[in-house]
Design a protein around this nucleic acid. Structure first.
Length: 193
DNA sequence: GTGAGGATCGTCT
DNA sequence: GACGATCCTCACA
């Protein structure tokens, strides 16, 4: 296994448009009941601050989106449509809102646990395991109550992003998905399969 | 294989 | 009181 480096806070203290493509190929890992569930990041979307109508931060600071306005490198977990969770990480220095939404992972460690959490067999296709924001959180066992506000840059955290040195061969940029506002902006980044 | 519609609730107005 | 940064099922072709 190659060496893994925890991404420092400075990594996130940049514009989401820069951080998002940089996150592709990194390892997202979550410690659940003592077991590390890990996946390689395949797809992300950048959400800018006040100027991005699609961003939760565009309506101004509220109790719900406060994390986006805080320091960089913090997990922002929110529930959507009453039945799904989505995982983001805050970007830009303290006080400036912005973030990156994780949309898809390639499962690497803890695949059996992920399949169990998703109520699927271990033989299920990776895309079904963690392809899609809601699936991703379900597969890793992430809930808002437990994980919103967790610092991703601490070695003691249960939720981290690691760099094992691997870089995607090619990155594709497309408009964002599943939103109505500003859906035409090319802020979705994915690893070309 | 593809597209329409239902599920379901925290959060903000 | 209305509405999502979604996912899944079920028709129908």
């Amino acid at each position: 296994m190659s060496r893994r480096r925890l991404l420092p806070r400075e990594f996130y203290a940049r514009s989401p448009e820069i951080v998002a493509p940089d996150l592709l190929g990194k390892l997202l890992t979550h410690r659940r009941r003592g077991e590390w569930l890990t996946g390689r990041i395949l797809e992300v979307e950048a959400y800018l601050g006040l100027t991005d109508p699609a961003s939760h931060a565009s309506i101004g600071r509220t109790a719900r989106n406060a994390v986006l306005f805080g320091p960089p490198g913090i997990a922002y977990v929110y529930s959507i449509y009453g039945m799904h969770y989505c995982l983001n990480v805050s970007c830009l220095p303290d006080g400036e809102p912005g973030g990156v939404l994780f949309r898809a992972l390639a499962p690497i460690e803890g695949i059996e646990s992920m399949a169990r959490l998703r109520h699927l067999s271990v033989e299920a296709k990776p895309r079904l395991l963690a392809g899609g924001p809601g699936r991703l959180c379900q597969a890793l066992g992430i809930s808002r109550k437990e994980r919103n506000g967790v610092d991703l840059t601490l070695a003691s955290s249960d939720l981290q992003i690691l760099d094992d040195g691997k870089v995607p061969k090619a990155i594709q940029v497309t408009p964002r998905i599943g939103i109505r506002k500003a859906a035409d902006r090319p802020l979705r980044f994915l690893v070309v399969d």
